[in-house]
Design a binder for these strands. Structure first.
Lengths: 215, 215
DNA sequence: AGAATAGTGTCTCTCAGACATTATTTG
DNA sequence: CAAATAATGTCTGAGAGACACTATTCT
């Protein structure tokens, strides 16, 4: 018997002001319907990252995304009857370009996850925790927004991921001081006073140096 | 053709006041001698972590160590002629219980790495970077020291990993304020005034909450 | 004019970083 | 008593967090 290597994806996006996960139906029917992470077996001559991108395109159709390796799960009995090692990637999709969902694939609120197969509930919880931590010391939050965005939208993204309200003035002060975004000359109109649009400065260091010792 | 899954180890320890890596000779003879990370193939009915521990015991004999998954490498041509996916674990060995080194295995200074096979030089560099970051926001530094230690020894461990000198008073203030270590009643005598021994508080949270946003 | 949203400043408190001297033990 | 190492406190500057009002646009 041989060991199967596969790649699975935790795909997150902001939809309707909340953080949502893209899942694949594994059948079962209501109310016992069970879901799984999208994924595929690793094939010959393909890197893990290529497999992850291929699977991303195959399921969402979307192209503009951010992917990073999360963790590799390999317990012999995590999938009963099969010996699979699964390399899980975390993916963030910009709200505009994210997939529509269809018969098989659907978006689910991260705050109220449905029943998931095998160990995938734990995997998802871990992915969310990692994203929250990462949000605090990297510039990864911008990956969830369109290329230009208002400060209010950015703050909303942070609040959706962290699950917590942030102070408007302090948020702006810190994010601007960090120097990772820059103002454009455009504004976005709507109800009320139009808001200035910002863009991510890709010349900014992605990983900001962490503080010394225990913060 | 099938894909081999294996586990490789980056084993680090403090020896002679410096951070060292445990490597396996891959032959070649001086001055072209090449080294590799210790590792083994994943076998049926074995979890990744079990394989890592098994390999650790098989090569170092040592038992008291800390292991965590680092990253999984799976490029199709990372090992010419073979299709291997390698799940790499980072291991920290306490200075006292670390393996002696023999014909095949030897310790090497992390600051002056020898020639390594395939992509393993890059893997090692990544492991060192991750450890430095991790040292700054977790309590992982204690894994390199015996169970009781003086503050001077602890500071030495941090300095060896970070490759940088730290201020004695500031280091003590912060490490004590963090509340992850506690004083014992014992002292260690030697030359000069005996130093109080401390021990790691395992009830302390391992992952200290990171700061908000960009530090 | 009123509703809606954008945008802005101050104060306090905690903590990081720089820095030098006293205390205790051994030989 | 000399040598060696341990232990300790203060000042300054930067940034986090709490907090409320003014500015601009649309209908």
């Amino acid at each position: 018997m041989t060991i199967e290597v596969r790649v699975d994806l935790v795909l997150l996006s902001l939809r309707q002001e909340s953080l949502q996960v893209f899942l694949e139906s594994a059948g079962g029917g209501e109310p016992r319907e069970t879901w799984r992470l999208p994924g595929c077996a690793l094939v010959e001559r393909q890197s893990l990252e290529q497999a992850a991108w291929g699977c991303l395109k195959g399921t969402t159709g979307g192209a503009d995304a951010y992917l990073e390796q999360l963790y590799t799960y390999g317990d012999p009995d995590r999938v009963p009857g099969h010996r699979t090692v699964s390399c899980v990637y975390l993916g963030l999709l910009r709200s505009d370009g994210s997939a529509p969902g269809g018969e098989i694939h659907q978006w689910h609120r991260a705050a109220r996850l449905p029943r998931l197969m095998h160990d995938q509930g734990a995997i998802l919880k871990y992915a969310l925790t990692r994203l929250r931590y990462k949000l605090e010391y990297t510039a990864v939050g911008f990956e969830l927004l369109p290329q230009t965005f208002t400060l209010t939208e950015l703050q909303g993204a942070y609040e959706a991921v962290l699950g917590e309200d942030l102070d408007k003035r302090n948020f702006r002060r810190r994010i601007l001081r960090a120097g990772v975004i820059e103002a454009t000359k455009s504004h976005r109109s709507g109800e009320g006073r139009p808001a200035r649009l910002y863009r991510y400065r890709d010349d900014a260091v992605a990983e900001v140096k962490a503080r010394r010792l225990f913060p």
